[in-house]
């Protein structure tokens, strides 16, 4: 079992990170304190994941049996894949600017809690719960970054960045729920189905992160003769993005948090 997990890790999105660590070990003996970067342009292409940590909720009022009922949807965001890419340019000494694009997608559920009016009596709602699955969240982010780049060695570059983001979010929201009456005396009711409608909106936010890049390939004996290998490396980016968007279901606002911590890794190209 443990062996299988280890193999899985090597093949998963963290594989480039493991390569980065391997590169550090290989190149460590020759590390020197060369703090100003030698290359002005770095391009990245990453993939990774965003851990599940966010929930948001929406409440909707409806009319049934001549009375108002309501349901609350607690949206439980799950882990999702992130694809992230971008370019940075060194402006002056260690200061640079970057422009990244990221895309996050996940399929998640919402826990539905309903209060449904009784067919015979006022003020005697029945409560029920259920789950609405297959909900999709997508976030397309454009991140403008100011970078402080430090080159610890020819093969090891670390940058710290922050800046504004523009996030376009698309979220499936539960707009209606259906219930099935169990029958007389109608003291119980069963959640049976739900209706979903996608809502899209763009907002601004903030981003900040740390990128550790290792250009160690040209130091490997079997790649030493390939000059292009000096420009190719691997990197690990930890980025936190924060944004808030107000979505609406028939005029009722739902505040949705966007972004979160994401860990990506991938290839780096420097010029």
């Amino acid at each position: 079992m443990r062996t299988r997990q280890a193999i899985s890790l090597c093949r998963g999105p963290v594989a480039p990170a493991l390569w980065l660590i391997a590169g550090l070990l290989v190149a460590a003996p020759e590390a020197t304190a060369q703090l100003t970067p030698t290359d002005r342009i770095v391009a990245r292409l990453d993939s990774g994941w965003r851990p599940a940590s966010r929930t948001f909720a929406g409440t909707r009022v409806f009319t049934a049996h001549q009375e108002q009922g309501q349901f609350a949807a607690d949206y439980e965001l799950k882990d999702g894949g992130v694809v992230d890419g971008g370019v940075s340019y060194l402006l002056w000494r260690n200061l640079g600017i970057g422009l990244d694009v990221s895309h996050f997608r996940t399929i998640h559920e919402a826990r539905i809690s309903s209060e449904v009016p009784h067919p015979f009596f006022f003020d005697l709602p029945r409560t029920t719960t259920g789950r609405a699955g297959g909900l999709e969240r997508q976030e397309l982010g454009l991140h403008i970054r100011a970078l402080w780049v430090t080159q610890f060695a020819d093969w090891l570059v670390v940058s710290v960045s922050a800046g504004p983001s523009i996030i376009s979010a698309k979220q499936d929201l539960v707009t209606a729920v259906q219930h099935t009456e169990v029958g007389f005396p109608f003291s119980d009711i069963v959640f049976s189905d739900h209706t979903v409608r996608a809502q899209s909106k763009t907002t601004t936010g903030l981003n900040g992160g740390v990128d550790i890049d290792s250009f160690f390939l040209h130091r490997l004996p079997f790649l030493r003769n390939f000059a292009v290998m000096r420009h190719i490396g691997v990197g690990l980016l930890a980025r936190y993005v924060r944004g808030v968007v107000m979505l609406q279901i028939d005029g009722q606002p739902i505040e949705v948090d966007l972004g979160g911590l994401q860990i990506t890794s991938g290839v780096r190209f420097r010029f």
Binding site: H65, Q66, E67, H118, P119, F120, F121, F122, E181, G183
Partner: peptide, 23 residues
Amino acid sequence: VLPCSQCVIGEGFGIKSDRKKMS
């Protein structure tokens, strides 16, 4: 001296104008 397709709930007012649900 109701679960049927035609069943609906109405709103009724009794002789004292008290509000009740009508099946």
